[in-house]
């Protein structure tokens, strides 16, 4: 079988805030034989423009899709927001002739045309479907069987179901299985599929911080040692904002939040500094220690 090859859609939040996610992703994908091609000249996926101008969102997303079509490569996105938008627009333009004509009318201004020849996947889909759990398992050198963690898949990797439909958004299992392959136990907790609140952080801080606080509380209640995310925005809410939440609510959580490829990387025996574990806001030393036992 050919080596899986994808155009990497990096998006904005990862280079701006979370190179640790990018670093660890590149490391584990290389080990798994997935080839990443850099995507030149891309623009913001379009997500932040949907609330203010739906047509602008469609057009920005479509321009990215056209860039992938020109190279004849499928897209992998690491961010739920980027995946959600690019996948949704890709499917909508493929299915709805009217919308496609409208968007192609806009794209004509820059000499582009959406044809509908590529697909969009999230990192977890590439891992679970293209690489496969069996192959991932073969690369695990240090099973993390001492570790009990929880997953937070986030919203846009699953909802709305109509445009994705790869798993039940109420009971997501793809990330769960990817976690279990590392040897770690994936615990269940209350309101697991609930939103992190990040999209409205720029409008209202109180509500998203309360949502985040509740989730951390539920995670703590089941005794998880870490939380595993696959989206930069979710990660910002639970990791970067965790000390702030602790201060605001006068509570102590101290729950490390790892990007999934960091967890997988540890299980593969990659050294913690190569996985940028030190970049995390909440100290993950305990996880590193457990993984090296």
């Amino acid at each position: 079988m050919d080596k899986p090859k994808y155009l990497l859609f990096l998006g904005c939040a990862i280079p701006y805030r979370l190179p640790s996610y990018e670093i660890s992703t590149r490391k584990v994908l290389r080990k798994l034989g997935v080839e990443l091609v850099e995507m030149p000249d891309f623009n913001c996926c379009g997500f932040p423009t949907d609330p203010v101008s739906h047509d602008t969102m469609l057009t920005l997303a479509a321009r990215n899709l056209c860039l992938a079509e020109q190279r004849n490569l499928n897209i992998v996105a690491l961010c739920n927001g980027c995946f959600g938008i690019l996948n949704h627009v890709n499917k909508e333009l493929k299915e709805d002739k009217e919308v496609k004509e409208k968007v192609n009318g806009y794209l004509k201004e820059i000499g582009m045309e959406f044809k509908g020849t590529v697909t969009v996947k999230h990192l977890i889909h590439v891992l679970a479907e293209d690489v496969g759990l069996e192959k991932i398992k073969e690369t695990v050198q240090k099973p993390l069987s001492q570790l009990r963690v929880v997953q937070h898949s986030g919203c846009h990797v699953n909802r709305p179901r109509k445009y994705i439909g790869l798993e039940d958004p109420e009971n997501p299992t793809i990330l769960k299985k990817l976690i279990e392959v590392t040897g770690a136990e994936c615990l269940e907790y209350m309101d697991e599929p609930e939103c992190c609140g990040a999209p409205i952080l720029g409008v209202d801080e109180k509500i998203p911080l309360q949502l985040t606080r509740d989730k951390l509380d539920h995670v703590k209640a089941v005794g998880a040692q870490a939380m595993i995310t696959v989206c930069p925005y979710c990660h910002i809410m639970y990791d970067l904002n965790q000390p702030r939440i602790e201060r605001a609510f006068n509570e102590k959580f101290g729950i490390p939040v790892l990007h999934y490829p960091q967890l997988l990387g540890l299980a593969m025996g990659i050294t913690p500094d190569k996985l940028a574990l030190k970049d995390l806001r909440v100290d993950a030393t305990e996880i590193v220690n457990v993984s090296s036992q």
């Binding site: 609330p51 846009h156 599929p193 939103c195």
Partner: peptide
């Protein structure tokens, strides 16, 4: 402006 676009309602 408070909707966080989690799409739970749509589902």
């Amino acid at each position: 402006w408070l909707c966080s676009t989690c799409f739970t309602c749509i589902d």
